[in-house]
Simulated assay, not measured.
Amino acid sequence: MRTIPPSLKPSVVSEIDERLSTVASEHDVRIPWAIESGSRAWGFPSPDSDYDCRFIYVRPRERYLSLWPERDVIETPLDAVFDVNGWDLTKAVRLITKGNATAIEWLRSPIVYTGDAGFRDRLLALASDVAERAAVGRHYRHVALQQRSGPPSLKRFFYVLRPAAALRWLAVHTDEAVPPMDLPTLLSEGDVSAGIRDAARDLIALKAQTRELGSGEAPEILQRFVTEQLDDAERFETMPPTRDVAESRARADAFFRAEIG
């Protein structure tokens, strides 16, 4: 599958395709999932936003049986435009099983460079079965608090607002642990007021038009929303695990073995 919006520059997409092809060839790996992360996939790009391609790769089965495990990350040269790197399937599955929200988000990206829908759906099913909601909630709360503690700016506010919206989504979807990646969908599915959605939409439109948002303050309605979500999500800090660790690991092992054939 492939989902590339017209807003992405064709020349940049072609370069990303080339990098992915080179990675697969030079490292002898299969790439069943490659997506865009960062502000473009989060739904609030700036005119000068770089491209953050992330991928999951799978090595031939026999290479997982070595006494000397290989590095579980592949990186390509980083520059002002391209940030393209990926994780081995082992790393992705371990982190998803622990409730790592970053790894889970990759499966919900609205921008897909190349992907096996079946692989994505199987890994999403695993995440839904084994990921701890509390771990996912803590991740988003800590990200928001960390960003909030930095020098205030409208640009930084987006990196507070999105995790706050993810926390709201988790509060509304009480039996799920795999929130969407992009801010507009989080707000739409998070049952927030029309005022919050409208204020976020206007701020996104402003960010899309200017390279530097400056140090102005975000709308009061969005600031209140963030504070409410962070206060409410404090419950995740002391929430006990709900999954049986041994069972989750067994499911993750079964998924891994099936995927490497």
Rank of each mutant, 00 (worst) to 15 (best):
A101Y: 09
A144K: 13
D88I: 05
D121A: 15
S109N: 09
A233Q: 04
A24K: 11
F158G: 07
K155H: 15
A258M: 12
Y64H: 05
R61F: 08
W87Y: 12
A103T: 07
R249I: 09
R224N: 14
E212C: 06
L167T: 02
S66D: 14
E237M: 10
T210N: 11
A164R: 13
V93C: 03
Y140H: 13
P219V: 10
D182R: 13
L213Q: 07
K155R: 15
G99P: 09
L89A: 05
Q223Y: 01
S248A: 15
S11I: 01
P10E: 01
V13W: 04
D28V: 13
T185V: 11
T97M: 04
A258T: 11
G118K: 14
L65S: 07
M1T: 10
I221A: 04
Q229C: 12
F236A: 06
F119V: 08
Q209C: 05
S128K: 15
L183E: 01
T3F: 08
E217G: 11
S14M: 05
S37G: 13
S21D: 12
I221H: 05
D232Y: 09
K207H: 02
P152A: 09
W87L: 10
V12F: 02
W169V: 03
A134L: 03
D121G: 10
A200S: 15
A254N: 07
G43L: 01
S11R: 14
P180A: 06
E26H: 11
V58F: 02
D72L: 07
K98G: 00
L95R: 01
E75A: 14
V178G: 00
L167W: 05
V160W: 01
D50I: 04
Y64R: 04
P10V: 05
D28P: 00
T174S: 12
T102M: 13
R201E: 14
D191R: 04
F44N: 02
S128D: 15
A205M: 05
W106P: 02
T114H: 10
G86A: 10
F82G: 01
G137P: 03
L187F: 12
M239E: 14
K9Y: 00
T227G: 05
T22S: 12
T174N: 02
I111A: 06
I4R: 09
R94F: 09
V112W: 03
L206G: 00
D83W: 07
P47T: 08
Q147V: 03
K155T: 07
E217P: 01
L145T: 08
K155N: 15
T3I: 12
D175P: 00
A101V: 06
G99K: 02
L167M: 03
E18K: 15
A171G: 14
P163F: 11
H142C: 00
S39V: 06
Y159P: 09
Q209E: 13
V29G: 04
A194S: 13
L126Y: 10
A127K: 09
T102N: 13
A41E: 02
R120S: 11
P10A: 06
H27V: 00
G195C: 03
